[in-house]
Simulated assay, not measured.
Amino acid sequence: MAERPTTNWRRGIAEEAAELAAGTLNPDCAGMVDLYPDELLSATDAVLGAFEAELSTLDIRSDEQVFALVERVVLALNALNEAHDECAFETDEREQLCLYIDEALTEQGVDVPALTSRHGLGRYELTDQWRDW
């Protein structure tokens, strides 16, 4: 399965903590824990977990079902971002989340370029019509 962005974010937190403990990182330069608080990571994992559960039962031949699933995960991430004062996901996080959705769909057998092309979209516009973050 595609690696969740939260896995990458947690890895960054652990690496930063190790650097702080080793004295190789100035504490004034550390910020991963503030950028990715536990509440945000847990809530994001819950949203992505629900997406993965639905993905496993998805009829990949149905564009409507695929788009409905993408819409649900994006709207849930919108709500999460809104709950964090519109600051939960910055540019890098947005790109990771969009890539994750694309990769997860692809691994399930969805031809994302063909899907988006059939609907007059570029491949990387899959989430755009719903995404606020």
Results as ranks from 00 to 15, higher is better:
residue 76 A to N: 09
residue 104 A to R: 05
residue 67 F to A: 14
residue 95 E to M: 01
residue 103 E to H: 06
residue 67 F to L: 15
residue 87 C to H: 14
residue 58 L to T: 10
residue 104 A to H: 01
residue 94 R to Q: 11
residue 97 L to T: 04
residue 102 D to V: 10
residue 93 E to L: 05
residue 67 F to Y: 15
residue 61 R to P: 00
residue 106 T to D: 08
residue 85 D to C: 07
residue 60 I to L: 12
residue 61 R to I: 00
residue 96 Q to N: 09
residue 101 I to N: 01
residue 80 L to M: 07
residue 106 T to G: 02
residue 59 D to R: 07
residue 60 I to K: 13
residue 96 Q to C: 06
residue 75 L to A: 00
residue 85 D to G: 03
residue 86 E to V: 00
residue 74 V to M: 09
residue 94 R to K: 12
residue 84 H to N: 14
residue 93 E to P: 01
residue 82 E to N: 07
residue 64 E to K: 00
residue 63 D to A: 15
residue 80 L to K: 10
residue 62 S to K: 08
residue 75 L to Q: 13
residue 71 E to V: 03
residue 91 T to V: 02
residue 77 L to P: 01
residue 88 A to V: 06
residue 98 C to G: 12
residue 65 Q to H: 13
residue 96 Q to I: 04
residue 88 A to H: 05
residue 68 A to P: 07
residue 72 R to D: 15
residue 104 A to F: 04
residue 97 L to H: 08
residue 105 L to S: 09
residue 99 L to C: 06
residue 89 F to T: 03
residue 101 I to M: 02
residue 64 E to N: 09
residue 103 E to Y: 01
residue 77 L to Y: 03
residue 78 N to Y: 11
residue 72 R to Q: 15
residue 73 V to W: 02
residue 101 I to Q: 00
residue 75 L to D: 15
residue 66 V to A: 11
residue 76 A to R: 10
residue 86 E to L: 10
residue 103 E to T: 05
residue 99 L to E: 10
residue 105 L to G: 11
residue 92 D to F: 03
residue 62 S to L: 11
residue 102 D to N: 10
residue 91 T to M: 06
residue 61 R to E: 14
residue 92 D to V: 01
residue 70 V to W: 01
residue 95 E to F: 02
residue 74 V to R: 01
residue 90 E to S: 05
residue 69 L to P: 13
residue 73 V to E: 09
residue 95 E to S: 09
residue 104 A to Y: 05
residue 89 F to N: 01
residue 76 A to I: 03
residue 93 E to A: 08
residue 103 E to G: 00
residue 88 A to I: 09
residue 106 T to V: 06
residue 82 E to H: 03
residue 84 H to F: 15
residue 97 L to M: 03
residue 102 D to P: 02
residue 68 A to H: 10
residue 98 C to Q: 14
residue 80 L to D: 14
residue 65 Q to R: 08
residue 94 R to V: 05
residue 106 T to R: 10
residue 105 L to T: 08
residue 66 V to M: 12
residue 90 E to C: 02
residue 61 R to N: 14
residue 103 E to F: 06
residue 83 A to D: 11
residue 59 D to W: 07
residue 97 L to N: 00
residue 103 E to A: 08
residue 90 E to L: 02
residue 76 A to E: 15
residue 96 Q to D: 14
residue 100 Y to C: 05
residue 68 A to V: 11
residue 98 C to F: 11
residue 72 R to S: 15
residue 96 Q to G: 02
residue 87 C to Y: 08
residue 82 E to Y: 04
residue 105 L to P: 07
residue 86 E to A: 08
residue 80 L to T: 13
residue 65 Q to C: 07
residue 65 Q to V: 08
residue 99 L to M: 04
residue 73 V to F: 06
residue 102 D to F: 14
residue 60 I to D: 12
residue 63 D to C: 09
residue 101 I to Y: 03
residue 68 A to K: 07
residue 68 A to E: 15
residue 94 R to F: 01
residue 90 E to V: 01
residue 100 Y to I: 05
residue 69 L to N: 10
residue 59 D to P: 08
